[in-house]
């Protein structure tokens, strides 16, 4: 699986209720470097789910980025209600078949998953 198989994909909860779309992946660099690599290995920490839009945050998920004010406001409004869900709370990812066909791909979350603040400080 590559990042592109998850980004833009619809997200549902265990009851099949639509929650939004995957707009970003959060990675943590805390694994030992792979052979010959300088940088720490990356681990998938979780998915950022936005309820209404597949468009990107354009970097405004960082609370330190507030300028220019109107654009920051507009993007925050569009992504209101976005949340971060940890990777262990993801019950299923799109099947290889659905990814290939380019439709019917969904991410399903575990019952009782936790919503975290997606903001980066």
């Amino acid at each position: 699986m590559i990042a592109g198989d998850l980004i833009d994909v619809e997200v549902r909860d265990a009851d099949g209720e639509r929650l939004g779309y995957v707009v970003d992946l959060r990675l943590v660099l805390d694994r030992p470097p792979e052979a010959g690599a300088v940088l720490a290995g990356a681990r998938l920490h979780g998915l950022v789910v936005s309820p209404r839009t597949r468009t990107s945050f354009l970097g405004y998920e960082r609370t330190s980025v507030r300028a220019p004010w109107p654009i920051a406001q507009l993007l925050r409004r569009r992504h209101r209600g976005s949340f971060l869900v940890h990777w262990p709370d993801v019950a299923s990812v799109p099947s290889l078949d659905a990814t290939r066909r380019g439709k019917g791909a969904i991410v399903v979350l575990r019952r009782g998953f936790d919503r975290y603040d997606p903001a980066l400080t």
Binding site: V65, A67, I71
Partner: peptide, 25 residues
């Protein structure tokens, strides 16, 4: 361009000032 010029990750201390942002917007 306006968005990127405000991104501290690329621009560091050289992000747009208020005036430039006001005119740009």
């Amino acid at each position: 361009i306006l968005v990127v010029a405000n991104d501290p990750e690329y621009m560091g201390e050289h992000v747009n000032g208020r005036v430039l942002n006001a005119v740009g917007t």
